[in-house]
Design a protein around this nucleic acid. Sequence first.
DNA 1: CCAATTTGACCGAT
DNA 2: ATCGGTCAAATTGG
Length: 356
Amino acid sequence: MAFSSEGGVPAERVAAAVNDLVEVRDGLVRLRGFLPPPPQAEQSSSRPPCAAELMDATMSKLMSAMATLGGSGDIAGEVDAAGRWTSVAESADPMVVRREGESSAGRTRRRRGGGSRSGRGRSSNKRVAATLEDGHVWRKYGQKDIQNSPYPRSYYRCTHKLDQGCGARRQTQRCEADPSNYDITYYGEHTCRDPSTIIPTAIANAAGAASDGPNNNIISFATGGVVVANSSRLAREGTTATTTSAATQLSSSWGTSGGGGGGDDVFSSSGERFMQWDELAAAVGHVSSVGVTSSTVGSAPAAENDGGNGDTAAGGGGDGGGAGSFPSSPSAGSLGFVVGPLGSIEDVDDFFPFDP
DNA sequence: CCAATTTGACCGAT
DNA sequence: ATCGGTCAAATTGG
């Protein structure tokens, strides 16, 4: 629905294009994370085009294009005609609260959360990628052979689940049709914060741009807030966002920001390192404190594994000491989890599952 | 020694 | 009874 063939272009083509754009965007986002902090001090009137700014501009163009292609602008929407980009909202679910303390000695395990607790009001976001690497650090916790598929499915959770209670998960499986690609489905949202997160940089970088940048049509993060200007979709929907806090992090915007979505939970896939920018903007307009959710591994976790067998390596990737150990959970206060007034955060307890 | 992965067991849903 | 998802002991790697 999101992508309809406007005019003569078949929906699949559009979907494919959007899919590519998504990838491009991801790449940009990631790249931005590596940019050196620009001369923030001198945000003088005329500065040489800083890489970050260029990226911002590029990004905004991208978003614009995506919005256009997406018609309704619901980029987070679904497109499965081409089998590539899907976002499904699952229905709410009966209570699922369990926390078995189980000291687990011996092999006696008691009821673990098993089964498809799919219906947690969670949404999933499926996509196809050539690599399992997506900028996040995952820890594999299971693998299963699936009935119809020749390839097993691997289950990952965010490395920071214990650390920070990050509830992001993903499932990967080699694409049947195209074994060189992976089918990756994301569930939940990253609420973790990583030191190497790219957001701060992004914010810093854009800080200058916001004020006097020659670009309009740019989404930039200023230290004081987020300023969104002239995004076709935003314009269309009349969303204007200006925000607030000195965000050092933006956390997921679960909520459906008011208007459109309605009850279903709209969520920014973790597949996208960030939530859709425009969604972010919208959300941000409603929430006051924003936190960044994306965590990125600054140092590429090595490898791509994959070679022949794939499926296994992936995730957490080696790392051993690297990004893995990051006990940044000092003051929860600074974590800025936003669980705001937004509606649908159905399982908050999933984010703060336990207490030590 | 610690942390990540492997792998079979367990469990809820179908 | 079967399937898919998760847990956690055992194993492996750094």
